[in-house]
Simulated scan of single mutants.
Amino acid sequence: MELTFASYNIHKAVGVDGRFDPDRIIRVLRELRADIIALQECDRRFGERESVLPKAMLDDTPWHAADVARRPRSLGWHGNALLVRRDIKVGETEALHLPTLEPRGAIRADLECEGKRIRVLGMHLDLSGLRRREQVQAVLDHCNGHGDGCPTVLMGDFNQWGEGRRALRELRGAWQVLETGRSFPSRRPLASLDRIVASPDWTCHDARVHHSPTAAAASDHLPVVARLAIA
């Protein structure tokens, strides 16, 4: 079984030109041709925290949203959402609280595809290195607490500028931190803030930043993509 995973911080659908343009985000998502997409900053931060991508817009796409929202007008949890190809069955979902002073969260969905169960977690980590390490550890503790050997993929905006920082060192060894490339800022990428991390069950056939004229304008981040296979 081979699946394409993607992670994309959509910056509340506001592009580098300052325009709010959800349609442009949808065009980028279509370019990715991904089976499973983790989104960050997909909901407004205040009020009813409504999605910046109207749910009706997804009706004409290959994906549906995993049920992780805790507010009726939200697509995700603390801005994190998972879009899943329509023929992939979504099982148990969970919204995770991450340790921080600023509201942060992660989401988990157990999926069934071609008779196999896989687990996907999406997240948007803190700017603070100390908090980020604690958040990574909380995610790992959650995975270990569900110690059923389920093949797992972690995706999101890790807000990690340096390769040698401790937050990523927590993952290396037991996990595959894929070299997707520099994704921020979108016009002239300097940092690999956006990450895809896979459990050892997966074989990576491709990992890259998706760069197109539309993606360079649609958000301040570029999407990252990985093609992963499992026996």
Rank of each mutant, 00 (worst) to 15 (best):
Q160M: 10
R73D: 05
I36T: 03
D206Y: 10
A56I: 11
L228N: 00
V16G: 04
I196H: 00
R45E: 12
R19K: 12
D157N: 08
F20Y: 15
I230R: 10
I118L: 15
H210L: 13
C143N: 04
D194F: 02
R117L: 10
L111P: 05
F5D: 01
H142L: 11
A216K: 15
V120K: 01
Q40R: 02
L168Q: 04
V68D: 02
K116V: 11
R131A: 15
A167P: 05
A109D: 07
L101S: 13
P189T: 08
R70H: 06
G164A: 13
R49H: 06
M57S: 12
A6M: 05
A34Y: 11
L3W: 06
A231G: 15
Q40W: 03
I25M: 13
A226L: 02
R131N: 15
K12E: 10
P200G: 10
I26D: 09
A66R: 02
S128N: 15
L228P: 01
W161P: 01
D87M: 04
V153N: 03
E50S: 10
T203Y: 06
T4I: 14
A207N: 08
R24G: 04
R133T: 13
E92Q: 14
R119Y: 07
L178M: 12
D206H: 14
R165E: 14
F184V: 00
C42G: 08
A215K: 10
R182Q: 13
H142R: 13
V209T: 13
H146V: 03
G164M: 10
Q176W: 07
A95C: 11
I196A: 01
L154G: 00
D35G: 08
Q160F: 01
R108T: 06
G147K: 08
I37T: 06
E114H: 13
G91V: 09
L130W: 14
I107T: 07
C113L: 13
R27P: 02
